[in-house]
Nucleic acid binder design. Structure first.
Lengths: 231, 231
DNA sequence: AAATCAATCTCGTAC
DNA sequence: GTACGAGGTTGATTT
């Protein structure tokens, strides 16, 4: 990994065109050839970048650039897509190279898959007397997250999201339409379950007779982990 | 901006929990307090990070950590959300600080807004004899990208996307349903226009009587820029 | 390899 | 400030 602090301007051509005027920035050239252009603010997204697989070539500036004070051209090209990044280096304030080795990678806990697994184990969060038929119940247009039986013999289709927005309601609506035609399942009702449900999604769901349930991941995880329940 | 190359492990607690085992990584501490943890590969996304506004405090390791070889604890906390990042530093291989100043920011060209503007000026791309009624035609459920009149007196609602997928078709369908009830506009047909239309979206659109148009941004831009037309 | 879907998404913008 | 949609989305999983 090579770290360079430089005064530079940057031009990107690819899925769109973009330009960065002359300023001092951090350039990170990774071992896989990729390049990141960072400013001293903003979030983790670079101002500009090139994703691997790509190659960086350092060129002498043409006469016009040289007379404007450019020391080097860094050209980063993505062979497959044709995307190209041109960094004009005006001044190098720092330049160092480091060996990092491969990274063991990130271990996560608390993503949508965890939510769905927990909810399948605790369907009473959705309502009393419900029984899990199965997770990822297959249909012609994709799997339904959870399929439940209610005590009256009806079916409940549950869509699980970490953040519930309008798209999730549309998705569940398509499932309900399809499942409702199956005489073995009918009548089918819908439940939209998420850690956070956006107002528009709630309105649309309610309008379509879909019940919304807000999930408490930490609480559900506490029950899973064997904390005593009082009853 | 401070750049540190260090052997470290990282733990994140917040919207989820995540852990990075001990390895050599780049730590970027930006002027706004944010921290990025990068490996020597992958794309522009860090392995772990904390977004501003947040604060970094350097602590002496506790006895247990110290005996395991930890030199310092870097604790980065987001006051508002309660998210926290703990970096255990085992060895510092590089440490430098740099003044970058504020960045003038990125100038883009070729995003959805540009597409819509160009298409509004070149409605003949969609069909002959069409006339633009207006861009961003307001409805109760949001603005329609383009509303056109066809020579027969009917209305065409156009949804413009850079990449056309199933969501865009659903959105246009909702508009068509609503607009079709207006006797001043009826009959209303739909056109789904995008630089790239996914197969599933094309199937759904066709099934609903919506015509798909693939847009050539560079070509349309060439016309806009004053290239001569032969007629 | 292509498609599908989630994300500590981030980022702009309109309300 | 919040909500909503786009993104050079990226990244993971499945077909």
């Amino acid at each position: 990994m090579r770290l360079v602090i430089a005064r530079c301007s940057v031009d990107y051509t690819g899925r769109l065109n973009a330009h960065l005027p002359l300023a001092t920035r951090l350039l990170v050239h990774k071992g896989d050839g990729s390049l990141l252009v960072h400013s001293d603010g903003g979030s983790y997204k670079p101002l500009n970048w090139m994703s691997p697989p790509c190659t960086l070539t350092v060129e002498e500036p043409d006469a016009e650039s040289a007379s404007a004070g450019v020391l080097e051209h860094w050209r980063v090209t993505h062979a497959k897509t044709g995307d190209a990044l041109l960094v004009r280096i005006y001044e190098v304030l720092h330049d160092s190279t480091h060996e990092l080795g491969i990274d063991p990678g990130l271990q996560k806990d608390g993503v949508e898959a965890d939510l769905q697994r927990l909810l399948a184990e605790q369907v009473d969060v959705i309502g009393d007397g419900l029984q899990l038929v199965r997770r990822e119940y297959p249909t012609a247009i994709g799997p339904v997250d959870l399929l439940l039986r209610d005590p009256a013999g009806g079916t409940i289709a549950v869509e699980v999201k970490r953040r519930g927005d309008i798209d999730g309601v549309e998705q569940l609506t398509r499932y309900l339409e399809l499942l409702g035609r199956d005489p073995h399942l009918s009548p089918v009702t819908g439940v939209f379950a998420a850690q956070e449900i956006k107002p528009q999604a709630k309105v649309l769901a309610t309008d379509r007779g879909i019940r919304c349930v807000t999930l408490d991941y930490e609480g559900m995880k506490g029950i899973e982990s064997g904390a005593p329940r009082l009853f």
